[in-house]
Design a protein around this nucleic acid. Structure first.
Lengths: 209, 209
DNA sequence: TACGAGCGTACGTTATCACGTACGACGCCA
DNA sequence: TGGCGTCGTACGTGATAACGTACGCTCGTA
């Protein structure tokens, strides 16, 4: 999904700004630390990072390495990716049933539609799927493999469904849900006699523009 | 959610290992780069980071600073938090309909259930809701306000639903979906004569207190 | 075979990250 | 009022991240 075609994406410098964002993680760290009622030395004790270093990072005077940033995140009891999450996205967007563009083909037995706006900055893509009896996802025209690091949740809203992920099968019935790493090879099958319907949520599929 | 009470958490060194994880982001960068058919110099061109530096980072010989890590992430067309998403849960987790703990109260007209595992580090929380006619969410026992920065998607799977977000109302019918900032004051109402059912996806809340 | 173009990596230099120590400011209690 | 403890920050030093250059390598191609 999203972008990242395994093609020659090079010809255009994606953003070229290079400088990217000022990365003002400092105030965030300070806010989190103060929210925990920790002094710089306290946090230094917990993280193994010196208090002056923490002070400089909080004020944005230096950019810590990933190792120390990871230690700081651990000391704040969150993962590094959580600590660095200061992305964006704003407002309210309604996607009408009639407006969304369907994918797949009902003739082949698998049809789906994206119900979240296809805008950058989206953190979770939600889609509805319908799978005919005996059919499996992964045919031509289906959404391609997800990008590395993404995770997926499938919630069965009708019928029975079977997830095959990394060679292992998981049978799901109506109301069941499954969460898994979406970058592993996987597909869904419909073993039952009836049509299967499910909602898929792929997270972390955001791209930059 | 997650952990980290805003209390005096100090007495116990949270993990004390300090060293934390080896943070092997290198192989991941290499995999992503090769997936884009980019050479080290190509990526260096896109990111403003020298090719030898990229090589060292990929092989784990050095730990880049956040600034260069951010630039690398930008060159790979992802956010830094995405690039570092090699922590948090892994594998496949099935939540059976019978296993999930319901919330709300059917007597009050609003019942819901979380279908994603309630583990820290989850990027997207998916829940199913049922709202009786004339009832609005937000009553006692309902899930509290979401954290700053989080976003929510609601997909109507049955009946009609009305979202009131920051004072504005949005009418939704079966199959419609809406995405909005979950940290704005909001609630759902069921104007129709029938029961309303919808799936809610809350993504990426970062924790503050 | 020879050769240029591309690849990834080893080398040496510079910039800066990260440490330990030390200083002024503020609050508490004798 | 003085002394004690803690806070956050300004030093100076050693470690290392990041750079530019240059080497050996594998391909297509003449």
């Amino acid at each position: 999904m999203t972008v990242a075609t395994p093609e020659k994406t090079s010809p255009s410098k994606v953003s070229a700004d290079g400088a990217a964002k000022p990365l003002d993680v400092g105030p965030r760290i300070r806010a989190l630390r103060e929210a925990m009622n920790l002094s710089l030395r306290d946090l230094g004790e917990r993280t193994g990072v010196s208090a002056p270093m923490l002070s400089q990072v909080e004020r944005g005077e230096t950019s810590p390495t990933l190792t120390v940033a990871s230690r700081i995140a651990a000391g704040l009891e969150l993962s590094l990716s959580q600590l660095l999450r200061l992305d964006e996205g704003e407002g309210v967007t309604v996607v009408r049933r009639a407006d969304r563009r369907p994918g797949g083909s009902r003739a082949r037995g698998h049809s789906y539609a994206l119900v979240t706006p296809s805008l950058p900055g989206q953190r979770a893509e939600v889609s509805t799927h319908s799978l005919a009896s005996g059919i499996a996802t992964g045919g031509p025209g289906d959404p391609p493999m997800h990008e590395p690091g993404s995770r997926e949740t499938a919630l069965v809203t009708g019928g029975t469904l079977r997830l095959v992920c990394a060679g292992t099968g998981y049978d799901l019935h109506e109301g069941d849900a499954v969460t898994f790493d979406a970058d592993l090879p996987h597909h869904f099958e419909n073993p039952g006699p009836h049509e299967a319907r499910f909602v898929a949520v792929v997270s972390a599929g955001l791209r930059r523009s």
